[in-house]
């Protein structure tokens, strides 16, 4: 059985990370603000999962179960973003042939 002291240490670490993430948000890091915030969140999540939720003591099947939920979410997000991030990237071969004004000439209906 995990000693109470361990749980207290984890809780303390979580609170320190909370202060750290709030502090980091007020320093202008440009695009790295989000990265820092997410990194700290991942660390907090890891602490909660490993110690509070006992994944550290878990067997392989249980670890697989833990992993799969997050992995599937990653699939959902990354494959969806493969659309959202590549929209409106101009395709040169067709862009050149398109009429420059949209006034009179309408593209044929799909």
């Amino acid at each position: 059985m995990t000693p109470v002291r361990h749980y207290a240490l984890v809780c303390g670490a979580l609170l320190v990370l909370l202060l750290l993430t709030v502090g980091a948000a007020y320093v202008n890091l440009g695009p790295f603000n989000v990265a820092a915030a997410m990194l700290i969140s991942l660390m907090k999540a890891a602490l909660i999962l490993l110690f509070f939720m006992h994944v550290r003591q878990a067997g392989p099947v249980l670890r697989l179960f833990v992993f799969i939920g997050f992995f599937w979410l990653a699939l959902l997000i990354s494959l969806s973003l493969s659309d959202f991030l590549t929209r409106g990237v101009p395709d040169k071969s067709t862009a050149d042939q398109r009429p420059s004004t949209s006034g009179e000439t309408k593209p044929p209906a799909p």
Binding site: L75, L79, S82, D83, T86, V89, D91, P110
Partner: peptide, 16 residues
């Protein structure tokens, strides 16, 4: 991993 094939003629990007 394949759901986007229902959306080929939506405005989904060609790359996706």
């Amino acid at each position: 991993l394949v759901w986007g094939h229902h959306m080929f003629v939506s405005s989904q990007s060609i790359y996706a």
